[in-house]
Design a protein around this nucleic acid. Structure first.
Lengths: 141, 141
DNA sequence: ACTCCACATGAGAATGATTCTCATTATTGG
DNA sequence: CCAATAATGAGAATCATTCTCATGTGGAGT
């Protein structure tokens, strides 16, 4: 009832398969292009629909870029967060038991039910980190 | 040099003022409507521009809704996070020293520079919390 | 295996938030 | 007060995402 029936189609399999073959976050449009390039064409609208379903099912991670694009990526069932490079998009999965606990505590402390949280840490990965001399404007603010 | 000159205009003052008068998160379009209603008309484009500048200056908090809208709200200079009700939009500001530390630690542990983070906790506030009997599907997963 | 039909698909139109263009207006240093 | 130039605003343009609806197809039933 809460889980409407979903038919098994070639398109959905193609999307799921492609997601499984790449470990990076990509926009729906990029996944669409990849599928087309792989000779497994799937309509853009279908890619969007499938990606959303998978996201709801918790089978893909969703990320919003500052530019407003939504990125998707296959994910391990386990809950985790991301450390993302602002330059090249390189990602590292990290988990933070402390954060989970904190979020839950904060929510209940204010009487909020069914807490859920979003945690993203961004920075410049080792490769993109500026070779700036160690005396520049590292000043907080 | 890094801070391009900025002229003082009535419009920018109007936006900043309006932000100071309301404590809620609103989209650029909503702020625009409010300004117009207040008899202090400011072009929509200008509202967007001003809001972005203020955001970059760290004077307003920015929030992305699932619908893809960007919400803005005046903020206290201090860094903090939000506890947001998914139903009514009610927000509570919270800070989490533990989270800050964790984020910084995770970043440097992976060699990431200039860490920055996003943390949002959502849930159902006391008023919106379902009056569901305490035996329903509270089961995780 | 064959049929039927509700759900899935896809091409393109529609939507909607945000950004851009550029002529006009207004701030500020001199 | 004047000129140089940044800021403004109306509407066009952009762009990701969603919707529309005619057509295709899983898969349960026969």
């Amino acid at each position: 009832m809460t889980t409407p029936p979903r038919r098994a189609t070639r398109q959905q399999a193609a999307v799921a398969d492609m997601l499984g073959q790449h470990e990076t976050f990509r926009s729906a449009q990029e996944w669409h292009a990849l599928l087309r390039a792989a000779g497994d064409p799937v309509g853009l609208a279908t890619v969007y629909r499938t990606l959303q379903s998978l996201a709801e099912a918790g089978e893909v991670d969703v990320l919003r870029t500052d530019a407003g694009e939504t990125l998707y990526r296959a994910c391990s069932a386990a809950h985790h967060h991301h450390l993302l490079c602002r330059e090249c998009g390189f990602t590292v999965e990290v988990d933070g038991p402390a954060v989970e606990a904190w979020a839950t505590a904060v929510a209940s402390a204010h009487g909020f039910a069914l807490p859920r949280h979003t945690v993203e840490v961004t920075g410049l990965c080792p490769r993109c980190a500026p070779a700036t001399s160690p005396g520049v404007t590292t000043s907080p603010e």
